[in-house]
Design a protein around this nucleic acid. Structure first.
Lengths: 225, 225
DNA sequence: GGGTCTAATCGTCAAGATGACGATTAGCCG
DNA sequence: CGGCTAATCGTCATCTTGACGATTAGACCC
């Protein structure tokens, strides 16, 4: 039996919010297989590299995003025997959430890169099993908004309640009542930390600026119902 | 750069409930490294085998559990460069929940196997990074009881409300009010399906027998608060 | 300086969910 | 039959939620 050799890759579902939509980063493949097709960013894990380090490295290589501002967490492992026609490859996928929308930059293996609205998922096909991975990543993000402070990962370091609400509305593709949302998030345990300052960048009456609080869990949760 | 070779294993966090405790399956290692030490069950993924298939195979080999009755789901991937002293190994861990407590059986690589109360986690050390994996598995199970029907995976095909409550009490290590719990789970959307039959196996007044409903999500959720 | 606009924030109220706990009930066992 | 054990049903005060009205602080225009 022994242990057959595998290649291991780290692939990324990178999500951000454009003006009015949830978008995922996709890159155009510059090498076979699926040359010219769209795929998730990612690449081989190096011989002496931890999985998450590999994911962070790929993220930096393919986007140039400042590493400090990006939330990253493991999504799942994918290893169907035929998922890569070249050889046996297991990929460990990571979910990354970025607050703003930087211009994607082509990496070593990527001829091109762009933000694809997840709404267009229905029509576009990605290479390998990346459709599935992307769908899993989106679902993870949607689900975690309910019971974790993950939504703040889409926000800049200081943000308003309205900006946080916009995250929920775009990720869940729903409308939320501003008054009830405000009551809820300002009442949630350690979610928001007031900075004392205000901003008018959203227009209208000046809004309080908040920082992410130290809570790891959102209680009470924000249910979609 | 290319793609350095990895070995890939599927390891298992198998949880069950004994009379009064949450227990995890551990096996005594029959081979180096950590020969004679306790570890999670698991083994190498074969050359043409899917990850979950490997996990199911290992589970069957090391326990003899009837495959149909066991809930299994992926937990996470672990791949620190030094997690196995022999070579670079990435493991994809799976979480399995079994309703009853069958006698563990030694597998090919395991000299011995037993159910270890998770309470004894604090004192015992497992091989490799299996302490961490086990802790992650337990935490996953605890968390998923809140918002999914996962607790039913610890129950036989037909079970009473009290048996379901016992699952919550043992996994969370708390006491729950029988009356409020009853109201809650019988009111939850598609959680329970009445069979019409009753049983007195728990003593006292006969209890309704239920089957797992078709709901994939528990709504409203069962919060620990 | 005053009107107008926008969005933030505060209030109110009815409906639903929760936690604490009393009361009743259906089999079992002697 | 009386006592025992749980299951199941009720009650009630409290908390949370959803719907929506009212007020407010700046920006902008004249």
């Amino acid at each position: 039996m022994g242990h057959p050799p595998f290649a291991v890759t780290a692939d990324l579902v990178v999500l951000t919010l454009t003006g009015d939509e949830l978008c995922a980063l996709v890159v155009r493949r510059g090498v076979e297989p699926f040359l010219g097709g769209w795929a998730l960013p990612g690449g081989f894990v190096r011989a002496d590299e931890d999985l998450e380090d590999a994911a962070r490295r790929e993220l930096a290589e393919e986007t140039g995003l400042a590493p400090g501002t990006v939330h990253i967490e493991q999504l799942a492992g994918y290893g169907a025997p035929d998922r890569d026609p070249r050889m046996r490859v297991v990929t460990v996928a990571y979910l990354a959430l970025a607050p703003d929308l930087p211009v994607p930059r082509a990496g070593t293996d990527a001829a091109d890169a762009r933000w694809a609205p997840v709404r267009s998922l229905a029509t576009e096909r990605l290479a390998f099993d990346h459709d599935r991975i992307l769908a899993d990543g989106i679902e993870r993000a949607r689900a975690k908004l309910e019971y974790s402070p993950l939504a703040t990962a889409f926000c800049p370091p200081e943000f308003t309640v309205a900006e946080l609400r916009r995250v929920y509305e775009l990720v869940w593709d729903t409308r939320l009542d501003p008054r009830n949302f405000h009551r809820k998030v300002t009442g949630a345990d350690g979610l928001l930390e007031p900075t004392g300052r205000t901003t008018t960048r959203d227009g209208g009456r000046p809004a309080q600026l908040y920082r992410r609080g130290e809570a790891a869990l959102l209680y009470p949760p924000m249910l979609r119902s």
